[in-house]
């Protein structure tokens, strides 16, 4: 029985790089308006999971459905109108301006020869305002700071105007203030535009503070999946990350706060 609000569905996904299994029989479904944090140790398959959702890697077994459609039947353009991605590697070749980069997000709505129209400019402008980078429009992407660049890349994904956004460690290399800022924006998008957000994160506490649901991966399998408080437990984290932690709870939000305990 297909749930109407189900927007992403993974059915028994397996994938391997050569003989090394990376995703091992993963199944899950994500509802519209979900805000899912994907956590797990290095090599647990988080990034590959994001790639499997966008056809960048094709699962050897299983199927991925987005908006009820099998993605291998969608063209890149059709998929790019449903899912936007903020990648880990945000390097850009050549001296493009910030506005040009954000406007590239409009590509899935264009044929080969058409130029940007009023609608594109409006979408780009509003995305840049949401991400607070409108003042950087004419600056070169290579000239701005890491925090600004990450916001520009998210603005580009926003200009793509998709119901789903996937982010692969969007706060890596950012200082604390920018980390919190990025998650704050994601929460706003999730609440105000009911955008479905899946974010891969290395920061357990940030994911616990902002996400509604946590998926914990270990060795390409789902080790735990559910509401934040049920998943972010001392037992789960110690089992998956193989490090001692203490888990506290935020007084105001009652979200779990995770601290590693140095081992003697």
């Amino acid at each position: 029985m297909q749930n109407v609000s189900e927007i992403i569905r993974l059915k028994d996904i397996s994938f391997a790089y050569g003989a090394q299994p990376v995703l091992d029989d993963i199944s899950m479904s994500i509802d519209e308006g979900g805000f899912v944090g994907v956590v797990g140790p290095n090599g647990s398959g988080k990034t590959t999971l994001i790639k499997a959702l966008t056809k960048v890697v094709r699962p050897h077994r299983g199927a991925v459905e987005i908006l009820g459609k099998e993605i291998s039947r969608l063209s890149n353009r059709e998929l790019a109108r449903a899912v936007s991605v903020v990648p880990q590697d945000t390097g850009v070749m050549f001296a493009y301006t910030v506005a040009e980069i954000v406007l590239m997000g409009r590509s899935p709505y264009h044929g080969a020869l058409s130029f940007d129209n009023e609608e594109d400019l409006a979408a780009a402008r509003s995305a840049m305002e949401t991400m607070d980078v409108a003042h950087l429009g004419e600056r070169l992407i290579s000239e701005i700071s890491g925090g600004e660049r990450q916001r520009v890349i998210i603005a580009r994904a926003l200009a793509q105007d998709t119901p789903i956004m996937l982010l692969d460690e969007p706060t890596a290399f950012l200082d604390l203030k920018h980390q919190v800022g990025i998650y704050g924006v994601l929460r706003r998008l999730n609440r105000e535009k009911s955008m479905t957000i899946v974010v891969v994160s290395h920061s357990l506490s940030l994911a616990a503070q902002f996400c509604k649901r946590i998926v914990m991966l270990k060795d390409g399998r789902v080790a735990a999946d559910g509401p934040v408080r049920g998943v972010m437990t001392k037992e789960n984290i110690e089992r998956v990350f193989e490090v001692g932690v203490s888990v506290d709870y935020d007084e105001k939000t009652s979200a779990p706060l995770i601290f590693p305990i140095p081992q003697e």
Partner: peptide
């Protein structure tokens, strides 16, 4: 210019 994977993900 954004990389091949990102280009594919953008359509």
């Amino acid at each position: 210019a954004l990389g091949e994977e990102t280009a594919a993900q953008m359509g």
